[in-house]
Simulated scan of single mutants.
Amino acid sequence: MQATSPIGIFDSGIGGLTVFRSIAGQLPQYDYIYLGDNSRAPYGNRSFKTIHQYTWECVQWLFEQGCPLVILACNTASAKALRTIQQRDMPGRYNDKRVLGVIRPTAEVIGNYTKTGNIGVLGTKGTVQSESYAIEIAKFFPEVQVYQQACPLWVPLIENGEYDKPGADYYVKQYLDELLSRSADIDTLLLACTHYPLLQDKIKAHLPESIQVVAQGDIVAASLQDYLHRHPEINDQITRNGTRHFFTSSDDTADFDQHASMFFSAPVKSEYVSLK
């Protein structure tokens, strides 16, 4: 692999590829490295301490590959690890590098989508329990009411290729009904897990037309473009050859490639990396 200073994209598994797809689509000129920690996924039900440890190990690995900027394309890692990494781990050690998440850029704009001021957030157990979206959205849109719903069975359904099968409808409807029972005024649903765009068609099928469904990919990509414009000290470090390299902590790279291609909407050829 030629010497580059790429943008690092991290996820606990393959879900972050939906965000990476949008980023690469809007900013194709940059070099990128994607790292999926598939051997230790899912992160959703793990403790704050464990998620921080795993995320920080992966971020440091991406730094070692020459990444001046790492995007946590994972809501759980953004919710449970990002602040500690930014405020405790990096100062004094990696002052010339940056780590960004997906929650804040989403929170900065999601309030613009709602007319009723009632938003539903669908996420993993870890993301919902962290209250990160409710806290961040309140900073930018204090008048908006946020209703959260954990959907613990959706990621297993997606990763086992059942997301477009009839059996998935039951679990999609179950969680949507639970969320909507708490407010009849919800008009915007945020998919606060990067896996969930694969269920988007089924989710919409079980909703009235008055409720819009918002995925994060394009929001995060637009926010990154703005960030790089405002931070030339980071932007100037990133090389621009249009390269994409994929790594996974799973030793079954063929399985990763098969699933990753579905999320990335393009063929993926990965390499194995040990994070132990």
Rank of each mutant, 00 (worst) to 15 (best):
A3Q: 11
A3Y: 06
S5H: 11
I7R: 09
F10T: 05
D11E: 04
G13W: 05
L17R: 11
V19D: 08
F20H: 02
S22A: 12
S22K: 12
S22D: 12
D31M: 10
Y34A: 02
L35I: 03
D37A: 09
N38P: 01
I51P: 05
Q53K: 13
L62P: 04
L62T: 01
V70D: 12
T76F: 05
A77K: 13
I85Q: 08
D89C: 12
V99L: 11
V99M: 12
P105K: 04
T106Y: 01
N112H: 02
T114I: 06
T114D: 12
N118H: 10
G126P: 00
V128G: 03
Y133G: 05
Y133C: 13
A134Y: 06
E136A: 07
E143C: 00
Y147Q: 12
Y147W: 07
G167C: 15
Y171E: 14
V172M: 13
K173T: 13
Y175C: 06
L176G: 10
L179Y: 05
L180T: 01
S181I: 08
Y196R: 02
P197K: 06
K202G: 03
I203C: 06
K204S: 04
S210M: 01
I211P: 14
V213L: 09
V213C: 06
A215C: 07
V220L: 09
E233Q: 14
I234F: 15
N235W: 05
Q237H: 00
Q237T: 15
D252H: 08
D255R: 03
E271Q: 14
Y272V: 00
L275P: 03
K276G: 11
